[in-house]
Computed example of a mutant assay.
Amino acid sequence: MNYQILTRNGDCLLSESAEGIREWMEEELVRKLDLFVILQENDDDEELEIYLHTDNYEDLSEEELAKLIELGISECNSLEAICQLLEITVIQ
């Protein structure tokens, strides 16, 4: 299944699978936060979920993890928080 990333103006930035959307978000988070964050995607129930991968606990400091949690990026579905941070919308 493909999803689209739209700007706040409605322009399409990308049309890609769940994995492609996750990879794009990881790259954008590096640019926005100057921090490499490993995300995980899931769209088993026909609804896209993006959340923090557990490997981050080995790679990031406690301060970096706290910053992500403060931004709403956690092991729970964080798609909405990431979209707000990157000023985008994801549609199916």
Rank of each mutant, 00 (worst) to 15 (best):
Leu6Glu: 13
Ile50Met: 07
Trp24Glu: 14
Asp11Tyr: 06
Ala81Met: 07
Glu64Pro: 12
Ile21Leu: 04
Asp44Thr: 05
His53Val: 01
Ile88Asn: 15
Glu23Gln: 15
Glu80Ile: 04
Asp45Arg: 04
Leu14Trp: 05
Ala66Lys: 12
Glu58Trp: 13
Glu75Thr: 13
Glu80Thr: 12
Leu13Phe: 08
Arg22Asp: 03
Asn77Leu: 07
Ile82Trp: 01
Met25Cys: 15
Ile73Ser: 09
Glu16Pro: 01
Asp44Ser: 10
Cys83Thr: 11
Asn56Arg: 08
Val37Asp: 06
Ile5Lys: 03
Ile38Arg: 06
Gln40Trp: 04
Glu27Phe: 00
Asp59Trp: 08
Ile69Phe: 14
Gly20Pro: 07
Ile50Arg: 00
Glu27Met: 09
Asn42Arg: 03
Tyr57Phe: 15
Ile38Lys: 02
His53Tyr: 09
Phe36Met: 13
Ser15Phe: 02
Ser61Trp: 00
Ile21Asn: 04
Glu26Cys: 03
Met1Ala: 10
Glu64Asn: 13
Gln4Gly: 00
Asp45Glu: 15
Leu65Gly: 04
Asn56Lys: 09
Ile5Asp: 06
Tyr3Glu: 02
Arg8Asp: 14
Leu71Val: 05
Gln4Trp: 01
Gln84Ser: 13
Arg31Ala: 10
Lys67Tyr: 01
Glu63Ile: 02
Ser61Cys: 08
Glu62Cys: 00
Ser15Ile: 12
Tyr57His: 11
Leu39Cys: 08
Glu28Asp: 07
Ser61Ile: 00
Lys67Trp: 00
Leu35Lys: 05
Glu16Val: 04
Glu64Ile: 00
Thr54Gly: 02
Asp59Cys: 10
